[in-house]
Nucleic acid binder design. Structure first.
Length: 221
DNA sequence: ACCCAGGGTCATA
DNA sequence: TATGACCATGGG
């Protein structure tokens, strides 16, 4: 096994030992995961929770319930999540994809590659949002890459070229790790946790579970 | 008052 | 291909 792959496994074990299970994705249904995946784009999860709660209270946290809303009503409900006009459009486009496949179950039953392509065809759903849905709603062994992932890999010196694409980084993880959706889900959540816990902590590296050089430090190793 | 969140799209060059 | 502007709310 290559050195990089071993380090990715080591990192996972360290994070897991430090933080334990993260229990992602916090949602009761696959549809709720999909909605949350759109709402959380460039948005603090706290604000997404408010929006989700409002949708739930309005009976709009199901495809049927959401379909009953006008675009303006949907906008108003999700307002706390920010970018609410864009996101209302994106949710409605996602809803149409779901309806075209006879419901959430039908859509999520598609083969992984096909499902990914269908999700990416929805305006406003990019690689990370699509993969979050594949992993956390459909339970597929797909690794979710985000800005934190790139930053941390870079700091740890695990990125060959600085300009690795999303898919290249994804392949890196998917090659290094056992193809287990449970593990992928925890790993991604742990990377987010690491960033949240310590990136803005003061003092900066207090309690960081990683050996120095600290993975999230902006200073070069 | 500034910075940034569990991104993605579109217009320029 | 590669930057920048834009979307918008809420907390540090």
């Amino acid at each position: 096994m290559e050195a990089t792959e071993e380090k990715l496994l080591e990192l996972y074990e360290k994070l897991q030992a430090a933080y334990g299970p993260q229990g992602w994705w916090p949602a009761e249904t696959p549809f709720e995961v999909m909605v949350g995946a759109v709402l959380t784009q460039a948005t603090a999860w706290r604000n997404v929770e408010r929006a989700i709660e409002r949708l739930k209270a309005a009976g709009a946290l199901s495809p049927e319930g959401m379909a009953r809303l006008s675009e303006e009503e949907l906008e108003e409900l999700i307002r706390p999540a920010g970018f609410f006009r864009q996101k209302a459009r994106r949710l409605r486009a996602l809803l149409q994809l779901i309806e075209r496949h006879g419901g959430v179950e039908g859509l999520l039953a598609l083969p992984t590659e096909r499902l990914r392509a269908e999700l990416l065809s929805v305006p406003g759903i990019g690689p990370e949002t699509a993969d979050s849905i594949l992993l956390y709603a459909a339970g597929r062994p797909v690794f979710v890459v985000d800005a934190y992932t790139r930053r941390i890999l870079h700091r740890l010196g695990l990125l060959r070229d600085e300009k690795a694409s999303y898919e290249e980084m994804q392949e890196l993880f998917e090659r290094a790790l056992p193809r287990d959706p449970e593990l992928f889900g925890e790993y991604h959540a742990l990377l987010v946790r690491l960033a949240k816990e310590h990136c803005r902590a003061k003092p900066r590296c207090a309690g960081c579970p990683l050996a120095p050089p600290c993975a999230h430090s902006t200073e070069s190793a």
